[in-house]
Computed example of a mutant assay.
Amino acid sequence: MDAAARQAVNLNVLRRHDPAISAIVDTSSHVVVYNFDSATETWKKVGIEGTMFLFRKESLNRYGIFVMNRLSTDNHNEELNSEMEIQVMGDYVIYRTLDDKVVGLWIYEASDRARIAKELEKWVVAARQMGAQCLQQSWIQFDVFSRHLAVFIICALAEDLLQSVDTDRVPSSVSATCMLARFRPDPPVSAHWFLKV
């Protein structure tokens, strides 16, 4: 079987476990997964070893690690995020998860280890940059929305106030409707437009 056919077969197998996976970016033929036990300060095998795939998901261009377990049906599937810390220590690529779990990937091939660690670090940095951009864009859009909302509330309060005023004292050339029409912005159809994350 040539490399392209093998890649297609592997992608189909991964999609059975996670249909959102769109591509295999890199692989390593033999990886063993360990967890660090902070109580005893030792590494413990979790019973997962086999081929590791670095994958990409199309939605929001996310990346992750999938170790197809040769020992059982329990696989290791971890999506990368901006909070991860990745480092190489000896034969291990080590990372910390969001829930403060420390995972060690023992990678048999030294050339795979260096390449994969570099790739993972690149994706984590990209996730941080994308997260910062999304947060900045969300705050800018929220600020615009909140300004529209504030003007809308002020106009509604002004309308209530004008209705309580004796209308004989308001000049006939200026009606409450005309005053409000000049200042009331069109409210957004939906508040979801500013939540582009």
Rank of each mutant, 00 (worst) to 15 (best):
D2C: 04
R6C: 08
N10A: 00
L11D: 08
V13N: 15
H17E: 15
H17G: 14
V33N: 08
Y34Q: 06
A39G: 13
T42S: 11
K45Y: 11
G50C: 04
T51I: 01
F53W: 02
F55R: 02
F55H: 02
R56T: 06
E58C: 05
L60Y: 15
R62F: 01
I65H: 06
M68C: 12
N69K: 05
T73Y: 07
T73H: 08
N77F: 06
E78A: 02
S82A: 11
V88F: 00
Y92G: 08
Y92F: 12
I94G: 02
Y95E: 00
T97F: 01
D99I: 07
V102R: 04
V102W: 00
L105G: 05
W106S: 02
I107W: 03
S111V: 04
D112F: 00
A114D: 10
I116D: 07
I116C: 00
L120R: 01
W123F: 00
V124F: 05
G131N: 11
G131L: 05
L135V: 07
S138C: 15
S138N: 15
D143S: 12
L149D: 02
F152Q: 09
L157V: 14
L161C: 04
V165E: 07
D166V: 01
V170G: 05
V170M: 07
V170P: 07
V174D: 00
S175P: 14
R182L: 01
F183H: 12
R184N: 06
P185T: 08
D186I: 10
H192V: 06
F194T: 07
